[in-house]
Amino acid sequence: MRFISIDIGGTPWVARLDDDGLLPIATVTEFWGDAAGWMKRAETATGDALSHGECQEIPFVPASARVFCIGLNYRAHAAEGGFTPPEYPTIFGRWTASLSVSGVAVPLPLGEKGLDWEAEVAAYVGTNVFDADEAEAAASVFGYSTFNDLTARRAQKLTAQWTLGKNADKSGPAGPLVTADEVGSLEDGLQVRTRVNGTEVQNGNTRDLIFSIPNIISLISSTLTLHPGDVIVSGTPEGVGYVRTPPWYLGEGDTVEVEIERLGTLVTPIGGPSAREGA
Score class of each variant (00 low, 15 high):
N197P: 11
A49T: 14
A35E: 08
G81F: 02
L108W: 05
T44Q: 12
E120G: 01
A79Q: 14
R276S: 13
L72D: 06
N73I: 06
W95L: 13
T29C: 05
E238N: 07
C69L: 09
A76N: 14
Q161L: 14
M39G: 00
G82S: 05
D149R: 02
G172A: 15
A137G: 13
V256K: 04
G198T: 08
T127I: 09
S221M: 07
G82N: 03
P85I: 00
A26Q: 12
Q202W: 00
V231G: 02
P173L: 10
A15L: 11
E118A: 03
D18G: 08
G251N: 10
S222L: 00
T265D: 08
N167L: 12
N205I: 04
T223N: 05
H52Y: 14
G189L: 07
S274N: 09
S145N: 06
H227K: 13
G172N: 10
T199C: 04
T84G: 10
H227N: 07
E54Y: 06
G184I: 13
T265C: 12
A63C: 04
T199R: 12
G175T: 09
G198W: 02
E134D: 10
D181P: 02
G251H: 06
D18W: 04
S222H: 12
T27L: 14
A35T: 15
I232M: 07
D34W: 01
E54S: 11
T46A: 10
V67H: 11
I270T: 05
G71I: 09
A76P: 01
P228G: 06
Q202V: 02
F60E: 08
P59L: 10
I220M: 01
A15C: 12
D20S: 14
T245A: 11
Y74W: 07
G229R: 11
Y124F: 15
L224F: 13
D169S: 15
S145D: 06
G9Y: 05
F92Y: 15
E259W: 01
G114N: 10
P237C: 10
C55D: 07
A152I: 06
D230L: 14
P85D: 02
I25P: 09
G165P: 09
Q202A: 11
P85Q: 11
R75D: 01
H227Q: 13
A65Q: 09
R195E: 10
T159C: 06
G278F: 05
V192D: 01
E187Y: 01
L115V: 03
G198P: 10
V129Y: 01
R16Y: 04
Y144Q: 05
T194Y: 04
I213Y: 01
